[in-house]
Design a binder for these strands. Structure first.
Lengths: 222, 222
DNA sequence: ACATCAATTATCCGATTGGATAATTATCAA
DNA sequence: TTGATAATTATCCAATCGGATAATTGATGT
């Protein structure tokens, strides 16, 4: 039957409603690529699989993003942008020092717990020595608000004696991130070594409180 | 020229002194595989490359270890065994509580700093959700001494009032490991975001002191 | 209508790579 | 010396996968 398009014999192919919408397609690729890379890493991430799940041709991926590496970079940018956006909603300025520190700790902890795929992606990028982030300018600009928020709390606290002076906001941010990140990223090897639950809601709540206490304990004035 | 073995034109191939020593060969494969996997991950790690660098045939790798996965597991076991061995040399029992806590902190921090490839390997294993560690019994047995050492210090400290009571040794170990691990593992993404040096000897010394202070600050009695 | 250009598809390809088959060689006990 | 066994090599293969070529099709402005 010449002229008849070969129709794959499948269950009612519901004609993907691809409306040739540039942004829509791009975003869909990004979303699926995020999952794929977070799950399988950079070399483990498969462009064929991304294409299949996005219901497009692989060629389209290379059409929008030039290479697998650039796609990965774009995914990173998107992921970080989402985190920074979430941080915007924190309003530490309205709180007294101790409450602000605790709220910051709890937010950061929660974010990591709620976004394990983000944590995985960052781990993966570190395995690649941050070479994709190093290139992207966007990623470096996103960071400012986060730190200055902390700096303000520290200043206010130091002024009224509630927080000891001389604490570097970046360092505090690092400490908090380390604790929050580890609780998700290293869960598996840690649990394998120690009979220590890190995944249940109960364990999570406990560690959350623990970290908030710890952070406050180490910044409060004597 | 039939019958003539193709001789790669290389600098004086020094006839590898392979003495058919089972253990020697096995260990050499492990050492090189460690580097390969730590550098490139599991799917990124190349058995051909391992064979080449070990100056053996790839087949030999599958002869000793049955698959890439099992090789990776063996590498993990070796790496952890080395860390636990290093921990043996810590003699916290001889020190008073504060000194013991500080020494523990500094040792742990130093170990991670000095073994970035180990840190990478652990990150990679976590990306794979610890599925290799979960299987290996050896890896679970190695963990005991480490924790009981900490537990003893905490007990002693609590008894004399220097350390507040009720601290879980595993949790303390987690806190310390999180801080030490992050300082190496997440160096790249962190440095890319914040203009914050984490690699120079000076920065290292500073963070080391910082973590020891922090740990003490959060366990000492009020 | 129609030309244009952007979005999308169909198809192919060469390099890579985990693993398999089978031959070969060193070692060592009897 | 020799036979058996363990260590090692030489080769091959099928599957995977990033990326390239070129054709096709839908939207849009005129």
């Amino acid at each position: 039957m010449p002229g008849v398009k070969k129709q794959p014999v499948r269950a009612a192919k519901p004609v993907p409603i691809k409306r040739r919408d540039r942004e829509r397609t791009r975003q869909e690729i990004l979303d699926i690529a995020f999952e794929e890379f977070a799950e399988n890493g950079l070399s483990g991430g498969n462009t064929d699989a991304i294409a299949a799940r996005a219901n497009i041709t692989k060629r389209l991926i290379f059409y929008y993003f030039n290479s697998k590496e650039e796609l990965f970079t774009a995914v990173l940018e998107m992921a970080y942008a989402e985190m920074r956006a979430a941080e915007e909603d924190l309003h530490l300025e309205a709180l007294e020092p101790e409450a602000a520190i605790r709220r910051l700790a709890e937010f950061t902890f929660d974010f990591h717990q709620d976004h394990p795929q983000f944590v995985r992606l960052v781990s993966i990028e570190n395995i690649h020595r941050g070479r994709h982030m190093a290139i992207s300018r966007r990623l470096k600009e996103m960071t400012q608000p986060s730190i200055s928020q902390i700096a303000k709390v520290l200043e206010r606290g130091a002024a009224c004696g509630a927080i000891r002076p001389g604490i570097d906001p970046v360092e505090l941010h690092m400490t908090l991130n380390a604790l929050s990140f580890f609780a998700v990223a290293n869960r598996h090897t840690f649990e394998a070594q120690f009979a220590f639950d890190m995944s249940s809601p109960k364990a999570r709540a406990q560690r959350r409180a623990e970290i908030a206490d710890l952070l406050w304990r180490c910044v409060r004035g004597d």
